[in-house]
Amino acid sequence: MIGIFHYLALSAVLFCIGLYGVLTRRNGIAVLMSIELMFNAANINFVAFSYYFKGIHFISGEVFPLFVIAVAASEAAVGLAIILSLYRNKKTVNVDEANQLRG
């Protein structure tokens, strides 16, 4: 039977796949995509908790993802603008090739 554990396990795995991508990907856009995966994992958590444990504050778990989606959209927009502006200057979007700033 599917319980809360299954959803949480799914979200934990998704979060850690995202984390792996963040730590290893060289392309800035790929890092951004991995971060989006992490956001989605947290959203699954919220909805699953609020569905399985209907406490007095259950509605906050259902509403939270709406806000997170809006935040993710604005973050993606700003992030892509920054990546494009770097691309114009250096013709690369790789995070580790952007290494002018070393002490």
Binding site: G28, V31, L32, V78, G79, I82, I83, S85, L86, R88, N89, K90, V95, A98, Q100, L101
Partner: peptide, 12 residues
């Protein structure tokens, strides 16, 4: 390009 790079790092 330094400024863009700093922006990218801070963003990520």
């Amino acid at each position: 390009s330094k400024s863009s790079e700093s922006g990218l790092k801070y963003f990520l």
